[in-house]
Design a binder for these strands. Structure first.
Lengths: 141, 141
DNA sequence: TCTATTTGCATAGCAAGCTATATATAATTA
DNA sequence: TAATTATATATAGCTTGCTATGCAAATAGA
């Protein structure tokens, strides 16, 4: 119960709930964050292009986009050259929360790491990247 | 996208999918693990007692227990002294996978941390505990 | 003792992840 | 060009988490 796996899972659940509470006033939920970040950088992407920037499965993204459209954050338009594809566009509402959302996310990251020194934080992030790399290796075996 | 929050979430999802694949042959899923660990230690607990050992919400546990009963891992009996409560008992099937499940979990933990030295692993676990503590503090404010 | 409150568990409903599969269109090849 | 294969997205169905709420039994108070 004090294993790495347990701690990782616990930490992730706690973190996502903090994020959920903090971004609720903005009208978004945690799962929408990665897609929004990418679309704020580059609007009008297809789902496939957006997918390539995120670490989730295609079906997960499709469903998340449907909820984002329902919530007025994006709209999907038909692709000019490919009738299978659709381009994804952030709405005015989706744009308007951008700065607040960024600030909130950065703030949470800071607060959550506040007990760690700068070097410890760096080490921690490095360990996570190494573990992630290792898991991806394991998976592909 | 390289923030602590993103990495934590990503790591947790990767890890749970590895666990899912590895324990599938045993007839269990990751969400059942914590409850099983606790029940293997002490059988016949009430839901409330079991809940106090886990870091999940009551409703989540109730649903997980229902699936565990469906899957033949546990049975729930009426409590001898309190008609509201039920005692939870691991079945023969649930017991039979105990050693395999333990081994699998420990094996995954080892593999996943294989790139970190012993000191690094210790530091990593310590950081996670500190971050978890911090998040819990934030939450209660 | 009767009523009100508390407690133990279940249920409803949602989000966000997954795999597997369907569907329509595009691209390739015979 | 017609048939096949590949691709872009959607849908179905599941798990596992959450909050909010329901319900019956136990406990406490008047």
């Amino acid at each position: 119960m004090n294993s790495a796996g347990y701690l990782v899972n616990n930490m992730a659940r706690l973190l996502v709930e903090v994020l959920r509470k903090r971004v609720a006033p903005l009208g978004i939920v945690p799962g929408q964050f990665p897609a929004l970040l990418a679309l704020w950088e580059k609007d009008g992407l297809t789902q496939k292009e957006l997918l390539s920037m995120l670490d989730i499965e295609q079906a997960t993204l499709a469903n998340t986009l449907t909820r984002m459209e329902r919530d007025g954050l994006i709209i999907r338009k038909e692709h000019p050259a490919d009738a299978r594809a659709r381009t994804i566009h952030v709405t005015e509402q989706g744009s308007s929360i951008r700065d607040d959302a960024y600030r909130t996310a950065m703030q949470i990251n800071e607060e959550v790491l506040a007990d760690l020194s700068e070097e410890e934080t760096k080490a921690f992030l490095g360990y996570m990247r190494r573990v992630i790399g290792r898991i991806k290796d394991i998976e592909s075996t």
